[in-house]
């Protein structure tokens, strides 16, 4: 069994009016079956409101499924006895850099998770130092988080999750509020954790360029998995992605338009280097 496995997973948000009567039900996640192998880099794409964040929160047991099951490293997330183990195993980085930093100093924030786990004091320090070093934020350990850039804040948050020694990290739109520079910092860190530390990464985003290095991409729409495959496979279907309110990387779009204009260009071009090679072959 994979590190994260879902079976017929579903989640419903129930809206109630002032008297407490049910006024509407939104199926945010609907019949999702995914199986993630340890060490994989998974990207989940989808427009706003497609259910991708709800799915992420279920993996971390912040939300418990309305239907079906989700297993994290073999543990059922709905099992109350395993709750803290699930959260320790599958850490989570959220969208807003300001709203997830608890400590008043960088190092204190990174130490927050280990403190909650009851790790002995000397080991907390070891973990904090090690995690901050991995995120190249060690020199900022005595700084106030308020003075850092968005990308740096997100790296502090990642370090905070790392210090809990998770097997898997879920990134819930970690770059949505960052500038291009900050986006690069965060994606580079996520890739490094996957490459070097072999941590399973689940990256939720709507920036196409961030997903081209993933092993697999899931595209969500209306709570369901609408597309699945390697970046090449997914980005070959430009029209379908556009139907789902998503774009494709610019190089892919240029290639697609060229092909439509009659040029012999293969499907699934992901970046400008590949486009150059394809053009070289036909020009």
């Amino acid at each position: 069994m994979g590190i994260i496995k879902t079976e017929k997973l579903g989640y419903e948000y129930i809206r109630r009016d002032d008297e407490g009567n049910v006024s509407g039900i939104t199926r945010a996640v609907d019949d999702v079956n995914i199986d993630v192998e340890p060490g994989e880099f998974i990207a989940i794409l989808g427009h706003n409101g497609s259910g991708k964040s709800t799915l992420a929160k279920q993996i971390n047991a912040i939300l418990t499924p309305s239907e079906g099951e989700i297993y994290v490293d073999g543990m059922n997330s709905a099992d109350p006895d395993k709750l803290w183990d699930v959260r320790q195993c599958a850490g989570m980085v959220f969208q807003n850099p300001d709203n997830q930093i608890i400590g008043q100093l960088v190092e204190e924030d990174v130490g927050f998770g280990p403190e909650n786990l009851g790790v002995p004091t000397p080991e907390i320090w070891e973990r904090v130092t090690e995690s901050l070093r991995m995120m190249q934020m060690l020199e900022y350990s005595k700084h106030s988080p308020n003075k850092l850039s968005g990308g740096q804040k997100q790296r502090v948050s990642i370090a905070g999750v790392l210090a809990m020694h998770p097997k898997c990290i879920i990134f819930d739109e970690p770059t949505a509020m960052l500038d291009p520079h900050g986006r690069k910092e965060v994606i580079r860190s996520a890739r490094a954790l996957n490459d070097v530390e072999k941590i399973t990464i689940i990256l939720i985003t709507h920036y196409m360029e961030e997903t081209i290095y993933a092993d697999r991409i899931f595209v969500m729409d209306k709570g369901r998995i609408a597309m699945e495959g390697t970046p090449k496979e997914v980005f070959s279907q430009v029209e379908k992605l556009q139907e789902l309110r998503l774009g494709v990387p610019q190089a892919t779009l240029v290639a697609h338009r060229l092909k439509a204009a009659g040029l012999p260009i293969p499907d699934g071009i992901l970046n400008r280097q590949e486009l150059r090679e394809a053009l070289k072959a036909c020009l």
Partner: peptide, 16 residues
């Protein structure tokens, strides 16, 4: 975010 980082009150918590 605090819950996701296993915060569950003061009990069993160590200090950095």
């Amino acid at each position: 975010a605090m819950e996701a980082r296993c915060y569950r009150g003061g009990e069993g918590r160590t200090k950095m």
